[in-house]
Design a protein around this nucleic acid. Structure first.
Length: 423
RNA sequence: GGAGAGUUGGCAGAGUGGUCGAUUGCGGCGGUCUUGAAAACCGUUGAGGCUAACACCUCCGGGGGUUCGAAUCCCUCACUCUCCGCCA
């Protein structure tokens, strides 16, 4: 959520910045400003009214104490008009305020100046690429055939137990997955991230605070009896740890990492893009989150991006880094880098990480603040990234490392798997 | 699931209808003393809104109500703790 003060002071700047996201904010911003000034006027009137009521109440208190009951009762009658006026003002104020809120939450975050214009994936800017994204042979099998061949992931079994998109990892497949999680967590810890194990379900407040609610696309699983939501990413519980908290400047940056299962309904998706491990309803992910000082958040974003792709280097996977264009940027993000690995049998780039700076957009609703050296309370910047999402890493590893003898495990994982080949 | 007790400022903990946005202690910050530190002493120390500033307004778990006036009374929801039951 953008800060009201910012909208008030720089409406035109916001409108022009949001054009990069292909969002026409002009009408919305003007309605917001109009409501805002109405609210401010009403608030002032209410303020004045309450002051008068408070004064009278104090006077009555004095009179009672002095035993002047008659005078006190006279004063009591005076409050009647004030109370009616107060009720009216309160009513109007609560109406306009909720109307304003409804409008403000419709405004996406303003993109960083470096974000390129563009409509979709084809306009994303490739900022870095490493490794060889070409197939070594025409006979490479896609991962969904390989996992069947070696019996390491069973999609049909998952369908039987639960439904499509809930695979069962078996034997060395399960071990490989566990190895990746341990490798990612250990690496993050070395990088200074504090590991946490968050709940996999969150309440409404948390889901609203990080922007998953309102859930217009129906992406979240909702346990209606208890009104809890299954997390679509560990970002939700981890970032919410800092909701309504005032940090010290010296505490920043705060670094957390967390492994969690992630649940997404992915309503409306179908076709070959969702084949095999490419898109699941339940998947594993290690997430990194930082709460940063506004002056350093972009430097930190670069570090997080580099950290995420250093994992891909260690796994010896060909990858590229994209700076998302305005059209592809999420509602809450100011700048996002996507990391994609090349899956050699599918001959496709697969997104395995998304590293974003939300600036104060998330912090504003979460009320994640810090006290600066001058003693002023300010909103912190929040950043997060996947490091990394498991299934597509699995897919790429399985496809790219296939040999006539079996699937070769990258060196760095062997101390975790205890084996070097799946055959 | 049943019964009971709670929820107050960074923490602990007073306050049961009228100068209470809140006594006090700890912690934090500033100072005196000291070569430096500790101790001691003095001062200061919640958040948000509005304002040039003062003033003023809001906030004592959330929401609603009673009253001229609510941290204090009533209703409701959430959470925490204790005991019992069940259980990985």
């Amino acid at each position: 959520m953008l800060q009201m003060q910012n909208i008030r002071e720089n409406p035109d700047e916001i409108i022009s910045k949001l054009k990069v996201k292909n969002f026409n904010a002009s009408e919305l911003v003007h309605s917001i400003l109009e409501l805002d000034s109405q609210i401010r006027a009403d608030k002032k009137a209410l303020d004045e009214n309450l002051m008068q009521q408070n004064t009278i109440a104090k006077e009555i208190g004095q009179l009672f104490r002095l035993g002047k009951t008659n005078e006190a009762n006279e004063l009591k009658e005076k409050t009647g008009i004030l109370k009616t006026e107060e009720k009216e003002l309160q009513q109007r104020l609560s109406n306009t305020t909720s109307l304003l809120d409804e409008l403000v939450v419709q405004l996406p975050n303003t993109p960083h100046p470096s974000v390129p214009c563009g409509k979709g994936a084809e306009d994303n800017e490739i900022v870095y690429q490493e490794g060889d994204p070409t197939s070594t042979s025409k006979e490479m099998l896609p991962h969904w055939e390989l996992v069947k061949k070696y019996d390491i992931i069973d999609f049909d079994l998952g369908s039987k137990i639960t439904g499509a998109g809930f695979p069962v990892y078996k034997g060395k497949g399960a071990k490989l997955q566990r190895a990746l999680i341990s490798f990612f967590l250990d690496s993050a810890t070395e990088e200074g991230y504090l590991e946490v194990q968050p709940p996999y379900m969150v309440n409404e407040n948390s889901a609203y605070a990080t922007g998953q609610l309102p859930d217009k696309e129906g992406q979240m699983y909702h346990a209606t009896v208890d009104n809890l939501y299954l997390i679509p990413t560990a970002e939700v519980p981890v970032t919410n740890m800092y909701r309504d908290i005032i940090l010290k400047e010296s505490n920043l940056p705060l670094k957390n990492c967390a492994y969690s299962a992630c649940f997404r309904r992915e309503a409306g998706s179908y076709g070959k893009d969702v084949r095999g491990l490419n898109r699941l309803h339940q998947f594993d992910k290690v997430e990194i989150v930082q709460i940063a000082h506004p002056d350093h958040s972009y430097q930190i974003l670069e570090e997080m991006k580099k950290y995420a792709y250093s994992l891909l280097q260690k796994l010896e996977l060909p990858f590229r880094v994209l700076r998302l264009c305005g059209g592809d940027l999420s509602f809450t993000s100011a700048l996002t880098y996507d990391l994609e690995v090349f899956s050699k049998a599918q001959e496709k780039w697969l997104e395995v990480s998304s590293v974003s700076n939300f600036e104060t957009f998330q912090a504003n609703r979460l009320k994640v603040r810090f006290k600066d050296d001058a003693g002023k309370t300010r909103l912190a910047h929040t950043l997060n990234g996947s490091a990394l999402a498991l299934p597509r890493i699995m897919a790429a590893l399985i496809e790219n490392n296939q040999t006539p003898d079996g699937i070769v495990i990258p060196e760095v994982l062997r101390k975790y798997t205890g084996f070097s080949l799946i055959s």
